[in-house]
């Protein structure tokens, strides 16, 4: 399930446990393809991190899931409904925090509580107030005077006060100071006290992915490359060090799943998806004397998927970065 090219997640049987399912979701803006045939599912009760470089298509995907943007092709389901035909009562069960935390600058924080309350049948004012307090916000403050972290706190308070069962957070942690970030993570952990609740969050902070997520999705150049549990991902992506008697070869045979190859003086470090004994034999066939597996952090494994700076051809040609 590491690569969406290999397994179509949406085609796998679903015992009714997914809160989100996307099938071949595609969106063009003019000629530009923003999201290309993305299929995945988010299991109920999971904390799913959605990562990818800026412009990879994360926000576009999220907006399609929520029915805020129509797909060019494909479809998605959220809480059992087609994203484009979401009844208001189902929408009320979803808490969505948009990127950048926009606010009406003239409105006071306390007024936001009253204003927002009108849109929801369920509204937990105690929850709203305690999160506002948690982010050290005075209720009389005008939203325009809040810091970036406090604006995130205000959005979080509005989102959580409606007691949703699904949280969709678009880069909630971007630009937060350490205290605000800690409050955000604490709120996320608190939210999942109820095991039926689900979080989908996009982020650039891989540290937060490692702390919070049990599932991970990687979107790279509009294509979904990873959609699986974090355990499975860590299990499948490995780093090996191949040692040679002299300089390593400049050209490599076609190694399936090769994500990154870095040359040292007499060695090659490879990060490989779906690593197997076959990879080791291929390396030995080009002169590797020893092939040793090395520990690989989740962060490095994820960066191997997203940090390639567009050098796609370099890899398919099997050439090596030095």
């Amino acid at each position: 399930m590491i690569s969406s090219d290999e397994v179509d997640v949406a085609s796998l049987p679903d015992p009714g446990q997914s809160v989100i399912r996307a099938h071949a979701l595609t969106r063009y803006f003019g000629n530009k393809c923003a999201v290309n045939g993305v299929s995945f599912s988010v299991p109920r009760g999971s904390v799913c991190a959605f990562i990818g470089r800026n412009g990879a298509g994360k926000s576009t995907t999220i907006r399609m899931l929520l029915g805020l943007l129509a797909p060019t092709r494909g479809r998605s389901m959220i809480l059992g409904h087609d994203s484009l035909e979401l009844p208001p009562e189902t929408r009320a069960r979803i808490g969505y925090m948009a990127e950048g935390h926009p606010v009406y600058p003239w409105m006071r924080v306390s007024q936001y509580g009253t204003f927002q309350k009108g849109f929801y049948r369920r509204w937990n004012q105690g929850m709203f107030s305690s999160i506002i307090d948690y982010f050290a916000i005075a209720p009389r403050t005008k939203a325009g005077e809040l810091s970036h972290g406090q604006r995130a706190g205000l959005h979080l308070a509005m989102t959580l006060a409606s007691e949703p069962e699904l949280l969709v957070l678009d880069e909630p942690d971007t630009g937060l100071d350490p205290a605000a970030r800690r409050s955000l993570l604490e709120a996320m952990i608190h939210f999942t006290r109820n095991r039926e609740r689900t979080i989908l969050f996009s982020t650039h902070l891989l540290d937060d992915v490692e702390r919070m997520a049990d599932h991970v999705m990687v979107l790279d150049y509009s294509v979904l490359r990873v959609a699986c549990s974090v355990d499975l991902f860590r299990d499948h992506v490995r780093r090996v060090l191949a040692q040679f008697s002299g300089p390593p070869p400049r050209e490599l045979p076609d190694i399936r799943g090769l994500l990154r190859a870095t040359a040292g003086e007499n060695d090659l470090t490879l990060i490989v998806a779906n690593y197997s004994g076959h990879t080791e034999r291929l390396l030995e066939s080009v002169g590797a004397q020893t092939v040793v597996e090395q520990p690989l952090s989740l962060e490095d494994a994820l960066v191997a998927y997203i940090g390639r700076h567009g050098k796609k051809d370099l890899f398919s040609a099997g050439r090596v970065e030095s």
Binding site: V47, E186, I189, H190, T192, R211, M212, D214
Partner: peptide, 14 residues
């Protein structure tokens, strides 16, 4: 499980 998760700021499932 809950208190260690909150103390370490990690997913309780971990």
């Amino acid at each position: 499980v809950r208190s260690l998760a909150e103390q370490l700021l990690i997913n309780a499932n971990t």
